[in-house]
Each structure stands twice: as structure tokens, then as C-alpha cells.
Amino acid sequence: MSALLHNGPEAIASTPSAGGWSVRDLDPRVRILVVCAFAATVVNLNAFPILGTALGFSLVALFSARLPLGKTLKRVMMMDTFVVFMLFLLPFTMPGETAFTVFSFAASWEGIFEACRIALKANAIVMMVLALVGTMEAVTLGHALSRLRVPEILIHLMLFTIRYIEVLNDEQKRMRVAMKARGFRPSNNIHTYKTFGYLVGMLLVRALERSERILKAMKCRGFQGKLYLLDDMTCNARDYIFAGMMIAIIVVLLSWEYLNVPFV
């Protein structure tokens, strides 16, 4: 979480697109809604050609978002490491026709196919999320979610996290440097564990103290339980065209899967 947020804003700050238009110019609310609809669709697909097509659309979106290649790949890989364990285990846990055996454990074809399906779905969704939502400032995401009527308390939690995760990270880095400056080299011993315990403890104490100071600062400025978000998000023709296009894609994928209508 920290790594995602931390790399996020700097890595892919919303830079104005040069010439033409890209997903970055679209209304953030439309982007979020479209991603949700796309994700809900993709998890309901099963046939390989259709999943492949969905992944294809995600790749097109990813390329048109013009994200830095290296950083994006790293983020996709982060998600894939979560999935990979499941992919290795699934063939052995799912009953079905035996494909091969490892140490007398049988791997089933059904399990292998299911694992591939999950991998395709996960990657298609993550790539679409990166292309449409990952290209927003985290703060913009908060604003857009608030405009989409997400409960205020969740928005506040998110915005405070975005605001202070960097401050906490800086504090952590300063402490790490101070440890290093006094010759601390982490290894596998009690001293190391104790020292990291102190580090985490200090971070918690400092975070608590900071939260008290922030509350005081908020009180001084008349805080009455409400944060005001100011933005001027507007939906224009381009957003409607984009939304229409994505709805068309979703309809094609779903009817291909469930009505067996081959469009392609």
C-alpha cells in the first residue's frame, strides 16, 4: 500500500498531454465508473478468446495512457506476485483429469485452465486500472470518489493517508539515516530486531503526537467535522463518447460470453 501510494504521485503525476487527447484529459469520475464496470465484466468472463480480447483492450488502454514502461511493469508484477502462488497451487487442489504429477501430487487440467483464467482476468483488470485510475493524482481520485458519493469518512481517511504517508515516510527515512550514521547494519540478530522494534515504536509515537497537533491546528481554524473539497469536475462530449465506447466494449464481451455471438 505504502509503496503503491508512495511511487504513485511522483511516478505518474498528471502531465498535460502533448497534442491530441489521452485518457488523462477525461473526467476522473467517468474513468472510475468505467473501470468498475469493466472489472465487473471481466470477472464474469470464462472463455479464453474472450478473456484474451479483454486483455487486448486493457493493453490498448495502457499504451494510449502513455505510462512509463518500467514503472508500470513493476506495478503489474507486484500484483502478479500475489497471484502466482495461487496459480501454482490451483492445479493441485482442483479435482479433474490429471495432466501431470509431482511427487505423487496430481495436477488437473481444470486447475491449470482455471489458474490461467484468473491470471488473465487479474492482469486485464489491473492494466485497465493503471491506465485509467493510475494516471490520476491520488488527491484527484479522492475528489472524484467524493463526487461519486462515497461515504465522507472513507474519503477523509484516504485524503489524510495521502497527505501524511509522505511525512511519515520522511520521518522513517531520517531515523534510518540516523541509525546508519551510528554504524547500524541490519543482520539476523536480537540487536537488529530490537532496533527495528524501536523504530516502529517511535514512528507510532510520533504519528500519535502529530495527529494531536493536527487536531489542534484544525480546531484553531474552526473545524466542525467537515472537510470541504473544492473542484470543478465537468463531463463534456469527449467523456460521453469515451463512456459510450467502453460500454460498447463491455456489451460485446458479455454478449460474446453469454449469448455466444461472435462479433470478431
Binding site: 485524503l159 491546528a217 481554524r221 473539497l229
Partner: peptide, 29 residues
């Protein structure tokens, strides 16, 4: 309201996402 307190650490004082929102926070309250 009548005595504006500027805290020692600006990171405590600026808690809103953008500068405009932070400056507007007091007046809106």
C-alpha cells in the same frame, strides 16, 4: 477565529489536499 495560530511545523497546519482547499478551510468553517 480572532487569534490566528501558526503552528511550528507546517505539516501539522496544512492537512488539506490542495493549497486552495487549505486556505479556504477556515473561511468555509
Amino acid at each position: 477565529r480572532r487569534a490566528g495560530f501558526v503552528f511550528q511545523d507546517p505539516d501539522d497546519q496544512l492537512f488539506c489536499p490542495t493549497v486552495a482547499e487549505d486556505v479556504a478551510f477556515g473561511p468555509l468553517n
